[in-house]
Design a binder for these strands. Sequence first.
DNA 1: ATATATACATAATTTACTTATGCATAAATA
DNA 2: TATTTATGCATAAGTAAATTATGTATATAT
Lengths: 112, 112
Amino acid sequence: MSNSKLYKGSLTTIILKLLNESDKMYGYEMTQKVKQITKGELNITEGALYPALHKLEAEGLLDVEVQKVDNRLRKYYKLTESGVKETTNKLSELENYIKTMQALVSPKFSLE
Amino acid sequence: MSNSKLYKGSLTTIILKLLNESDKMYGYEMTQKVKQITKGELNITEGALYPALHKLEAEGLLDVEVQKVDNRLRKYYKLTESGVKETTNKLSELENYIKTMQALVSPKFSLE
DNA sequence: ATATATACATAATTTACTTATGCATAAATA
DNA sequence: TATTTATGCATAAGTAAATTATGTATATAT
């Protein structure tokens, strides 16, 4: 992930959401998908992505399945049951964050 | 700042926006204002706030003026000229971040 | 008398990145 | 044919921005 410092903390949410939509994906595929969806706005770096995937796996939110395609390795990740639940949590957290920030930065504030 | 990890990276933007609206504020006042606006959702911690204010001052984005009120110190901060410019930048960065994240997490993606 | 609110500050630690590097194969290009 | 670019993984070192834990001091409420 390069670009704005604001993206810090969002990577896990992005990964979970991708897997929630696509059922099963491998790391490199995620970087390309995000680049495509955000029109190049957000580029996930490998140094951020792979450790994040390992962590989610260690926490039991993801399962892995290794495949060999065109003589190259691919590690396909998919959500576990608790991964599905956590996706819901993370998404509502994000929604909430966005609402809170919009309240804070809307012109002239919302509560005045 | 406690709560969600998503808020990481937002503090500077929040401070600048507060000062952009209120002309001049002191640290403690900011924590109370944010608590009020977000209905307790976001609590800025002192360990995050004061170093952030010092950094913004060091970068020339804020000016300070010390006052004594009720026998207690208050350090009033206000935006410098370049602080005003940076506020604009940070706010459009935030807007952009929110749009990007909404594209990523909107149900079933926006570009499919 | 004691706790809570007001008001600042900093040090130690943690977390989540970036940047840099490494390995390996396939395809495109000079 | 040599070299770069794309595909695909991984990790180590360094950095930024928090959290958590303290510390000081005064005023007010219980």
